[in-house]
Amino acid sequence: MTAQAAAGLELEGVSWTLKKGTSPILMETTLALNPGRVLGIVGPNGAGKTTLLRLLYRYYRPTSGRVWLDGEDIWRMSARNVARKVAAVLQEQPTDFALTVREIVALGRTPHRSGLGGFGGARDAEIVDGALDRLALRGFADRHLGTLSGGERQRVMVARALAQEPGLLILDEPTNHLDIRHQLEVLRLIRDLPLTIVTSLHDLNMAAGVCDDVLLLKSGRTLGFGPPHTVLCEASVSRAFDVDARRDHLSLSATDHLTFHLQEE
């Protein structure tokens, strides 16, 4: 259903500081992501994951460095043009103002509308229906968001982002507060979408399972960037999280699995 090609993303020495004179929240981050790749951002609390995401969806302006989207500096593009290419599913919970699921999903069309009003149109309705179907939300279309469970709401927000027809999709902890089944569904969706995806994740095993590349952050510094099996090695993970990490190979499921223990004093 995506009308737009997956976007390429590049960060060039991106730093971000809250106030002049304080130490940066994110330091000199450089990476390149080819169209269609899935990047997982992992690290302990306060590592700068959310800050990095905010820099990608043009909420924060880099203190130094640049964010390139398909070779264009996102701060040289208008907010609306960025919004046509980048969608984000955040942790924000909408206040219940009696909007229906369909109305929320239709918000994704906002940056594509031109001029005053300009609501509706058959194509918009088709795209919204497509997004509702993709997340199996058609039956919920006329319900108020306030009447849905946490997992259903999360799906609504993903559908809204898909209705935006982005080339780059950003997800902030998309599996938070979901039960196992819904977590797995979100992960499968991430795998299946033909988009460039950047997602922050708490669970390292999950990140290893779903991501093409992983960026490991600690206190705003990059500890590693690359394929999960190289970045999420025992030494790096132990260092990042201040724990003893051990990576076992699960023979039955044929995957690597990390376990963690508190370091001995």
Binding site: Y59, A79, L90, E92, G108, T110
Partner: peptide, 11 residues
């Protein structure tokens, strides 16, 4: 009504 950040990602 959805939130400041989300509204900003909608341009």
């Amino acid at each position: 009504t959805v939130g400041d950040e989300t509204a900003s990602t909608l341009g």
